[in-house]
């Protein structure tokens, strides 16, 4: 079973039970240098493997960029 989630505003389908860590791996994103939010709550790196995604979740993957 696949579930529908939104990652940085884009719709995605991932297998049921996918963890944050698995999502990052699937998207080829290193956990170093990013922060992840699920439904507007930060998921700390230490919890990336234990937190699983659910249908309809909104995920934000952010990084530092240049700014003033």
């Amino acid at each position: 079973m696949a579930i529908a989630v939104t990652v940085n505003g884009e719709p995605q389908h991932v297998p049921e039970g996918t963890s944050v860590a698995a999502l990052l791996k699937q998207m080829n994103v290193s956990a170093e240098g990013v922060a992840v939010e699920v439904n507007a709550e930060v998921v700390r790196k230490a919890r990336h493997t234990e937190v699983t995604l659910h249908n309809g979740d909104h995920i934000e993957i952010v990084t530092f960029v240049g700014g003033g």
Binding site: V7, N8, G9, E60, V62, V65, G66, G67
Partner: peptide
């Protein structure tokens, strides 16, 4: 130095 937080360009 200041930095900004933005969505990672996937």
């Amino acid at each position: 130095v200041t930095v900004a937080v933005r969505r990672l360009d996937l």
